[in-house]
Design a protein around this nucleic acid. Structure first.
Length: 514
RNA sequence: GGCCGGUUCGUCUAUCGGCUAGGACAGCCCCCUUUCACGGGGCAAAGACGGGUUCGAUUCCCGUACCGGCUACCA
């Protein structure tokens, strides 16, 4: 597989989300690729919570992440929730660890103290902003003009430190150096350090930024392969240098930068707003913002099967080289490979997403769907007393359900009388002969001894012939009488399942309405 | 603006120098079905552009265009 220095090492991968809100399609896909890769190599899948930005912390977001992973069946081997030998797995709880490495970098001359205030930074950006350079960077050209330990005297620095002046630690990017690495998806990617700024490593509040934390933790947690979104590519040189400066270069994981999931229309990264705007979910499960109380619908609640959700995510940017698009998680574990991940971003197509769900509903057995369907019916005050009947109904209607919620319309009439009848569709062609036919049909059914689809159909057709009516023009009225509208499986199958009493009663009800 | 990445039917994609460019979703038509589906069959639909390299380029190289990402004491 990967013929490299990790051949003899146990594969360890991590998903490192920030607990700032609901888990997005792209996030779950990153989890999935991590999970598949880990399981394929009998490795470990770790979830590490990157909560270093205290201002963005959102209550409940972490639980939401774990609930989502559980729903998807992508359960981590190690995490703050599941424990593990490298605990703690929450970066806020590892705060003390990072400072020592940051100081180490300063001592080695790879990083420095910077005392600039927010206002000073803003001023610098304003001062040096030109039309050719709209966003000046804190880099090798400008750092000498700022307040930091590269240009201040040792005395001044000691004094500022002694006075408890707030400071950050910044990496000292080399002036002109080419750094490159081999991405599992993209191949060799290289950068010139002149183009990247002196990123903050340790913030004034003592928390590390992502850049420091991800390197330190990936090292300490013995991560062998690191997968993340393409938006991280530009900061790869910072991370690369950090691995080197900290003396861990030999342990550096193999990286893969995953393509982005884009808006279906317009341009740009898919966001929660696009879902609201276009009417489809982007979060895995319902997410309620604790502050605004705003509810964002999820794929789960929209009626998606987790198997379908995982399947559709897997093939958004990846394929196995054949024409097959339907995969179980086991098949994905077996077939997945990072090399076959497409490089370009993919626009999300909700229609195709629904197709996956439809396929999964069709291939699921009635007993696999039973609980989920029963729950949806129960939410709509339909109590299912007979589970066997529900299974029969599910098998009868599942091919016409795209979302689990479709089971409501497709099967409620098996359990209770329709509340509305689409009599408007019968009316135009209704006449005395048909009226008489249905009165007699109800009577005949009432006296039937045999109650099964085939005999009911036979009886129906014989009676139609007796009235010199074509069965065709009677089928639609009968359907509407039994189910309420122009939908559902075969009419005689329905009559058979709902039984004599309900069949007769519904026919008479509707005849009375016409 | 700079840096990095990307670019095949409307959408997701196959192709690893030989292509009549294949599949899937969506669309349209037909069959099956006197509902809606399922199923079966069919139609329409693509290599951003310009240069190279080559007997031969969608495939390799270089430009250009376009799209995206990044350019925070956010991740």
């Amino acid at each position: 597989m990967y013929k490299n220095k990790y051949m003899n090492k146990k594969v360890r991968v991590r998903f490192a989300p920030s607990p700032t809100g609901g888990l997005h399609l792209g996030g779950v896909r990153t989890v999935l690729f991590n999970y598949l890769f880990a399981k394929q190599h009998q490795g470990d899948f770790i979830v590490r919570i990157e909560d270093t930005d205290q201002t963005r912390f959102v209550e409940g977001a972490e639980d939401y992440i774990f609930n989502t992973l559980e729903w998807c069946g992508l359960v981590p081997d190690e995490s703050p929730k599941h424990g593990g030998p490298f605990a703690p797995y929450r970066q806020s709880e590892r705060k003390a660890i990072y400072r020592q490495y940051a100081e180490e970098l300063v001592n080695a001359g790879y990083a420095y103290y910077a005392f600039d205030t927010t206002e000073e930074l803003e001023q610098m950006r304003n001062n040096y902003k030109t039309s050719e350079n709209p966003s000046p960077q804190y880099n090798h050209t400008l750092r000498a003009k700022m307040r930091n330990s590269t240009c201040l005297s040792a005395n001044d620095v000691s004094k500022l430190l002694a006075d408890q002046t707030p400071y950050v630690i910044r990496i000292k990017m080399p002036e002109d150096q080419t750094v490159s690495f081999t991405d599992m998806i993209r191949g060799e990617v290289s950068f010139n350090t002149a183009q990247v700024d002196d990123k903050v490593l340790l913030k004034a509040d003592g928390m590390p930024t992502y850049h420091l934390a991800v390197v330190v933790d990936d090292y300490l947690m013995k991560i062998t392969h690191a997968f993340r979104g393409e938006e991280w590519l530009p900061s790869a040189p910072v991370h690369l240098l950090l691995w080197k400066y900290l003396g861990w270069e030999a342990e550096m994981p193999l990286w893969a930068h995953l393509p982005l999931i884009l808006k279906p229309d317009g341009h740009g990264k898919l966001s929660k707003r696009d879902g609201d705007r276009l009417g489809f979910p982007v979060f895995a499960m319902d997410w309620k913002d604790p502050k605004s109380e705003e509810l964002t619908v999820g794929f789960k609640e929209r009626g998606f099967l987790p198997e379908a959700f995982v399947n559709l995510l897997a093939v958004l940017g990846w394929n196995d080289g054949t024409d097959n698009e339907l995969f179980t998680i086991e098949e994905l574990i077996e077939k997945f490979s990072m090399e076959r991940v497409h490089k370009g971003g993919a626009k999300f197509d909700y229609e195709k997403a629904k197709w996956f769900n439809h396929e999964w509903i069709k291939k699921s057995s009635a007993s696999q769907l039973n609980n989920k369907v029963a729950k949806i019916l129960a939410q709509n005050n339909i109590e299912v007393k007979d589970n066997e009947l529900l299974n029969t109904v599910i098998d009868l209607v599942k091919e016409r359900c795209t979302l689990l919620s479709d089971f409501l319309m497709q099967s409620s009439f098996f359990f209770k009388n329709p509340e509305q009848f689409d009599t408007a569709s019968i009316q135009p062609k209704w006449d005395a002969t048909k009226n008489q036919f249905f009165i007699e049909l109800a009577n005949a059914f009432e006296l039937s001894i045999l109650w099964n689809s085939a005999d009911l159909e036979k009886e129906f057709k014989e009676l139609a012939a007796a009235h010199q009516l074509k069965p065709g023009e009677l089928m639609l009225p009968l359907r509407i009488m039994l189910v309420g509208g122009k939908f559902g499986p075969g009419v005689f199958d329905i009559a058979n399942l709902i039984g004599k009493e309900a069949t007769v009663a519904r026919i008479r009800t509707v005849v009375g309405l016409l």
